[in-house]
Amino acid sequence: MKFNVLPLIFILLSNIAIAQQSTKTVTIKGGKYIPLYGTDSSIVTVKDFHMDIHPVTHQQYLDFVIANPKWKKTKVTRLFADKSYLMDWTSDTTFSNTISNSPVNTVSWYAAKAYCEYVGKRLPTVDEWEYVAMADETKKDARVDSLYNQKILSSYETPKTYLKQVGKTNKNIWGVYDLHGLVWEWTLDFNSILISGESRKDVDTDRNLFCAGGAVGAKDLMNYAAFMRYAFRGSLKANFCIKNLGFRCVKD
């Protein structure tokens, strides 16, 4: 009898190990809002979903790499991740202890997407991410609060925030940490921001957001931090691996 139970215990323990990899999520109650680029006619509806409370850490990403060797830094395909992929890791499976609990960075969109799929989740859309990120500790929409904006902007000016540990910033009203202050984060449809090399020429809209005086048409001039995020997303390519860019996952 005892003999039968042993393998079961083993499986049970490995199950716990898997569960520990995954970040806790909180429920985000959906709603309507006008994103930065919106006009009155383009209110965005966000459905209920669950969001990771932290960005994915180096340690968690390591577990993923071990289980999916094709994402090791010496194995990864250049089409899916540029040369900076996991550049601070000392080998395929090692990095300085000091960053174990810091957000993983220098990962591409493809890598972030593969990670989220591996843990049974997905990347958030731009609209979902911004919806949660407009909250502060007490309000679901803090965008009119100049202190909220100032805090985010000053974090953008602070160097090497990607070395900070996750979960140390104030959690917002949803119970989500670190949307601002550590790293910027990949979104599923980052390539829906229509600004590229020559935004006046090669695309036909979003001119109202990015093109010189045209930007006055944007809804929310207070939110300069959001401007920066949209512009940053517009400049990304999916295989870019950047120091101040990490990710978190969500679930439907």
């Binding site: 089409l79 969109w109 493809y110 599923l188 449809d189 390539n191 829906s192 921001i193 229509l194 600004i195 590229s196 090669d202 695309v203 036909d204 809209t205 979003d206 517009g234 390519k237 999916a238």
Partner: peptide, 25 residues
């Protein structure tokens, strides 16, 4: 489709069910 657009660095967004804006590449 989104993944392939990312290979080409093509940006696109649904404006309405029948209208998209997109890079001309």
């Amino acid at each position: 489709t989104r993944e392939f657009a990312n290979i080409l660095a093509v940006k696109y967004k649904e404006i309405s069910p029948i209208d998209f804006s997109h890079s001309n590449i």
